[in-house]
Design a protein around this nucleic acid. Structure first.
Lengths: 125, 125
DNA sequence: CAGTACCGTTCAAACCCTGAACAACCAAAA
DNA sequence: TTTTGGTTGTTCAGGGTTTGAACGGTACTG
């Protein structure tokens, strides 16, 4: 649980929990990845038994599935989300510390190349 | 600039800026990735002209390179770092919001499955 | 019927990482 | 010197992941 693919799967679970009727293309757009990648990750979720594809064609749609979370999918979503947030929170704290360091570094850089200090006017262009 | 590989490259730049004498194996350990991956990303940096491998063998070492940032590497390091932090900061804010949402969701879940509320005693099933 | 539009699925190519092996080099021991 | 051993960068097969483009199926419309 550290790769980009894991992140995609978690976001898929969270998306589908609220919108089971979403199309693979709509999911792809919402996730900002390609259709193929979405299909790939969705398939992994289905194979693991976390998601089930109900083949009900709603209203006038053609061949639409509803990707429903199974009970196992619901509990896994919760578990993975908790782990994800814990990890992200640590990461965020690290980022905050890093930003402080960077501010200091940039402060020194600013001395090297001042932004808009009180400069004596130089004539010409 | 969104993949894991990009992150590795940035961390490489920041590591080498302060420690140009580090070995590929030491870099790998510091980054928590394999030697092959380190070599792969380092090669990308060299090909882009952001890092130059100085072949100076220090003291009693065998075949040590020093991986020095080029001027272009220095400015790129700054630019990429800025972009990275901006992106991460947005992500961190999103995570904080998400955590708030989760707290609320978990609160509702608690209602669904009460932990230890004052329940009227029901005679045993 | 043909045309259009949307759906899921598939596939080659590329990218990235791992783990393990390899080849070069140098220092100290035999 | 020769050999041994440790440290270096490099390469490679294999597997996982993503993209982009295609494909075939199904329904609505004319």
């Amino acid at each position: 649980m550290d790769t980009h693919s894991d992140t995609i799967r978690l976001r898929l679970l969270r998306l589908l929990a609220d919108n089971p009727q979403l199309t693979q293309r709509e999911l792809a757009q919402a996730l900002g990845v390609s259709l193929g990648a979405t299909h790939y990750s969705l398939r992994a979720l289905i194979d693991k038994g976390l998601v089930k594809a109900e083949n009900f064609r709603n209203s006038q749609n053609k061949r639409a599935y509803a990707y429903l979370l199974t009970p196992k999918g619901l509990t896994e979503k919760l578990r993975i989300t908790r782990a994800f947030l814990a990890r992200k929170q640590k990461e965020c704290e690290a980022i905050q510390r890093e930003i402080e360091v960077l501010k200091r570094e940039l402060g020194e850089d600013v001395k090297t190349e001042p932004r808009e200090p009180a400069q004596p006017r130089k004539p010409g262009r």
